[in-house]
Nucleic acid binder design. Structure first.
Lengths: 334, 334
DNA sequence: ATTCATAATAACAACGTTGTTTATTAATTA
DNA sequence: TAATTAATAAACAACGTTGTTATTATGAAT
């Protein structure tokens, strides 16, 4: 039997509506009684009943996040940031690891003020049939769904990376990334890479695009190991993600390949963690804080029934750190 | 403006209380009107308002999970399982990645029926001062907090592992595990290992206990690499976790050390994923499904105000797979 | 045909809160 | 001192539901 304002009212010898006002710090209650009531509320460890409150205010000041894939560092970082930002705006974040439709259903029942859907997996469900009275925001898929969407320009990111390497004089550039059958995002990166090869009239040799089965550091490690011990060693590698990069770094270290002097590495995923690796890694992508800020802002907007654009494309940036360097005059294997 | 039963009532030309009964499939409404109302509700994409419902029923049929550390595979697997099990019991799982006290506060406001706290990090807060009207269940810490707690007997697990190796004739056994300053669990495993050494009168040589900085696969990899290339190569390794084990496996593979013929590996963490590694790994620990089932059951119990034991200790099991074998007659390096 | 039982639906109260309206008290003025 | 105003606090209505109670319509039995 949870404590209610009526219990407090009885204890304080005052009407329950006075208690309500006191707890909400209304000017309609004198400071003295306010203080007294606050004290009693604390002692009785009172929690406002969100259900009752939201029933009358039509607001819960909470945001639901649908997060079906819980095992990716970049996403963890992103969610942690969004969570923190929402908190500073007095919003509470609720997560669900259910399927998108079930999670949306749940959040509707709880009357959250807005729902954020991480749809990176491109789960198979009919996005047009998602029943929801709560406004939705998608992160990850552009177009083809009727909800506001935020995504990152992955193509541009790879282009930035490539151009940076070209500027440094690199020609023998490899891309390491995973390429699952139905992942539109990874495809985008690979094709951007190939377009750039074409633009600079660089023929695509074997092993210039190394696709991995997974996004794990190991996949990066294995790919890099075989790539760097092969006959056609590149002078620079573009990595598809933070996790892969960690593996690549490890491989290089093992082979005593000096980074950046003997090999340049540039990685997708613009997260602070890039700075903490053995060699601080030059990174491309939309800064994770920018993503978090944008998502948070749009969430707050749709929660407050403001108009938001149908889709927001975030532009990537390049942050040059220690891992990229001009191509060595004498290539060790060339 | 969300659809309410009143809207449906108006549409169906019937009183709102009839709609309520129809939607809840009450026998007090004739099948004909029931069907009609259900149809209309569907068309209007109606969602029952949880706030209103829970206000009167005093139940939300939802469980809050406090999950401050979101980056560990075993925990992800565990939560995924608990989530699924609760779902089959018609309960909804809500996650929060906030600090324990803030998350408990949030869940109290939402009137979840029970709260599960993952307290593996032993976060610094006064557990006795956690204000909550909702029943709490802790996973991970035994004793010293006033709430029901479920934990796994880690000591026993390491003992099982050790005994198994002894049975196979191993004497040169190493333990690889991380040992952060304040992690009681990891300490428990290490000290269990040392006790066993003592029990079998095996002197502890250098590198018999290799502590890593992190729980990452890399840490396992590095540790194993140095351990296996050193002069005192063990015939068997006990690994502190799944992630470490993956690294160890990788290292062995690279060094062309045949598992299990040249080296036995046994790992903590009794999860199905152990079976899917290069070499299926013999594992000790409480089976993850057992943990999930126990937690789920206790959650349902406390949600329904049943009495539950103060603390439940789960007993570990050993599952022998392909990675352990009797000690080679001729030790390669001895 | 009138009464009575029953089936079907409608009306009502309650859950805990907030915002508004009304009543009470204290302070000020004439 | 009586009247008026300002201050405080109490009472009330509403939010969307559910469970209980009251009402109406239907049909059977006398």
């Amino acid at each position: 039997m949870p404590i209610t304002i009526k219990d407090i009212a009885k204890q304080a010898g005052v009407s329950f509506s006075t208690v309500s006002k006191a707890l909400r710090n209304s000017p309609l209650v004198t400071n003295k009684t306010k203080k007294r009531i606050l004290k009693i509320a604390g002692e009785m460890s009172y929690f406002p009943n969100n259900a009752a409150r939201s029933l009358v205010s039509r607001r819960t000041y909470s945001i639901g996040v649908v997060w079906p894939s819980i095992e990716r560092l970049t996403h963890s970082v992103l969610i942690t940031n969004i969570n923190a930002m929402l908190e500073t705006n007095s919003y509470t974040t609720l997560l669900s690891i259910n399927q998108v439709d079930a999670a949306v259903d749940t959040f509707n029942r709880f009357n959250v003020d807005a729902i954020l859907v991480f749809d990176d997996q491109q789960a198979v469900y009919d996005r047009s049939s998602l029943a929801s009275n709560v406004p939705l925001l998608f992160y990850g898929i552009s177009g083809n769904n009727p909800y506001p969407t935020i995504d990152a320009n992955r193509k541009k990111a790879i282009q930035l990376a490539f151009d940076h390497l070209i500027e440094l004089g690199h020609k023998r550039i490899s891309y390491i990334g995973n390429l699952p059958s139905n992942d539109h995002f990874q495809e985008e990166k690979v094709s951007a890479f190939r377009e750039k090869l074409h633009e600079y009239s660089i023929p695509e040799l074997a092993h210039m695009v190394v696709t991995t089965d997974n996004m794990d550091s190991y996949d990066g490690y294995s790919a890099a190991k075989s790539l760097l011990t092969g006959s056609q060693r590149p002078t620079a590698i573009i990595s598809g993600s933070y996790d892969l990069t960690r593996g690549i770094l490890k491989a290089a270290k093992e082979l005593s390949i000096d980074i950046p002097n003997a090999l340049s590495i540039i990685s997708y995923d613009h997260i602070p963690q890039m700075d903490e690796l053995d060699v601080p890694i030059t990174a491309v992508g939309v800064p994770i804080l920018t993503i978090a800020e944008t998502i948070t802002q749009v969430l707050l907007d749709i929660a407050n029934e403001k108009e938001v654009p149908d889709s927001i494309h975030l532009e990537p940036e390049i942050l040059v750190r220690k891992s990229t360097h001009s191509v060595p005059m004498v290539h060790p294997t060339l």
